[in-house]
């Protein structure tokens, strides 16, 4: 409860700060729109040459793109401003020390100290594309399908955050290693259906770096409802990712504070 209040406070402060620069707001909104338009244009070009992409129809891919855009928005709004640069800002310049002495869990403080609210426009745009894609779909998805989609989007958000923490935690062992931008690059692979990739890569993206659960899983739940295995699998992956992040973060912190390790 206290953490929720703290999160709301820091987000509203960041938002207020962001809104004082109105020109930037317009600029970022336009840029998000242009970026999304370019992605949608790419999808349209692809489907002008084919009817299906790795078995996915155009409305399905649109839902996927929308979901991906939404999650990218979440990532740029909340995860990137805090966790990108954690090795430099957090460990080498000592901001982590500052968080460690604050009376709240360090993982929370490190993850939510700030935000880039303007990037939130991307979340709204992504959601609009999801609705548009679902609307043009042959079978109209029902409330249950949307519920499953929302649940898996939430799970994907947690997974994204957990992977961000895992990448950031590497800094405890190698302070000069900043692989967050690598995460950002690999993240792009989730933009298209996981079925596109050859089997070994698909395995990698499911079990090692859980990109397949990020946009593909919620989209499947919406486009082809009624697969409890998918739902459970995705949730299990999320739980595993969060657990791994917590364990690694704690081990890293023990090392950082000189308590064994």
């Amino acid at each position: 409860m206290k953490l929720l209040k703290l999160f709301a406070t820091s987000f509203s402060l960041s938002l207020r700060q962001a809104l004082t620069f109105r020109a930037n707001l317009v600029f970022d909104a336009v840029l998000s729109g242009v970026a999304l338009a370019s992605t949608i244009a790419t999808v349209l070009i692809i489907f002008s040459r084919t009817g299906r992409l790795a078995g996915w129809t155009q409305p399905e891919v649109l839902v996927l793109i929308g979901t991906f855009e939404l999650l990218s928005g979440v990532k740029t709004t909340f995860v990137d401003p805090n966790l990108a640069g954690f090795p430099t800002r957090g460990v080498r310049q000592g901001q982590l020390d500052h968080h460690l002495l604050q009376p709240a869990p360090s993982m929370f403080l490190v993850s939510f100290a700030t935000a880039a609210p303007l990037a939130g426009v991307q979340i709204l745009l992504g959601f609009a594309v999801v609705l548009a894609g679902a609307g043009t779909s042959a079978h109209h998805p029902g409330a249950g399908a949307f519920g499953a989609w929302a649940l898996l989007v939430l799970a994907a958000t947690l997974t994204t955050w957990a992977v961000g923490i895992l990448f950031a935690s590497l800094a405890f062992w190698a302070p000069r290693l900043d692989l967050h931008s690598l995460f950002g690059s690999v993240w792009q692979l989730a933009r298209y259906p996981a079925d596109l990739y050859a089997r070994p890569l698909r395995r990698l993206f499911t079990y090692v770096l859980p990109l397949a659960v990020i946009a593909s899983a919620p989209t499947r739940a919406l486009a082809r409802p009624g697969s409890p295995a998918l739902l459970l699998g995705a949730l299990a992956t999320t739980a595993a990712a969060v657990l791994a992040a917590t364990v690694v973060w704690r081990a890293g912190l023990r090392r950082y504070t000189g308590a064994g390790g």
């Binding site: 960041s14 700060q17 310049q93 000592g94 901001q95 500052h98 002495l101 100290a113 700030t114």
Partner: peptide, 16 residues
Amino acid sequence: IALVRGSRPTGGAQEL
């Protein structure tokens, strides 16, 4: 308690 360091007087989000 509080720890104030001259080398980094303000932690937290610097854009606030």
